[in-house]
Amino acid sequence: MTAFLQSTFNGLVSGAFYALLALGLAVIFGMLRVVNFAHGAFYMLGAFGAYVLLAEAGVPFWAALVVVPLALALLGMALERAFIHRLTRLDPLYNFLLTFGLTLILQDLVKLRYGVQSSPYEAPAGLRGSVDFGLFDFPTYRVFILGFAVAVCVGVWWALARTRVGMVVRAATERPELTRALGINVGRWITPVFGFGIALAGLAGVLAAPMRAVNPLMGADLIIVVFAVVVIGGLGSIFGSVAAGFGIGMVQAWAEAYLSAFPIVAQTIVFIVMAAVLLWRPAGLFGRAEAPA
């Protein structure tokens, strides 16, 4: 039982990263119809941002948690205005290629400056050690990540459900033509929403820095799983992406814990789930629920 709870908890922590990244992808896809392949690169820039601030300017983790996502949001908005925006009217493939190209450029720029070796980053002093849960103890930093990610997801949900901006975003995501026909200026929200999605990726990157290897390729592997998560949740579905993020994290952790005799299965479980979901519900688990016909 203890082992089961532990691996569930670990799965939720992995899931927290998936959820934050998938949430950003979902709002961007919903608003711009752009599959942002560069999301993993922004996650990597988030982690590197935290590392550079600490190593070169002595800026601590807590400040980086605010500064880095904001800076990346600005960078994201600039890129949206300069490039992505110009291609949104064309086939989505164009932006897919564009963001893929951006990924390669960003990765290589970081590689040029910092090399491929991982850069060191430690958890802030207050979050080292572990918390005793009675049945088992668990690293404090992981508990923090889980709480923080859940708070961010709830905050985003609240903003979407209860604020005027949120309503516009939801409306534009689910019924773009109708929203425009009602005289709502969707265009002015596109750039800020893109920036917001990027900020979430950057935030996930800062959170990852103390527990994952910080190197230029750290986002490249992760983003493949996140795309699977987004597809499972339902492309563009905000609730679906978060639920699938946490769900896939747990499934992976259980597979690693209980299927270690079949490493091939543990390795590919995400894609097995994705294939099954696509066969059963081609729009993803929550793909229709957000936009009933």
């Binding site: 670990n10 922590v13 990852a208 994952r212 592997d221 992760l222 799983v225 992976q252 690693e256």
Partner: peptide, 10 residues
């Protein structure tokens, strides 16, 4: 791809 080894370490 998940970068997570906690199951094994636990």
């Amino acid at each position: 791809t998940s970068g997570d080894y906690s199951s094994y370490l636990l």
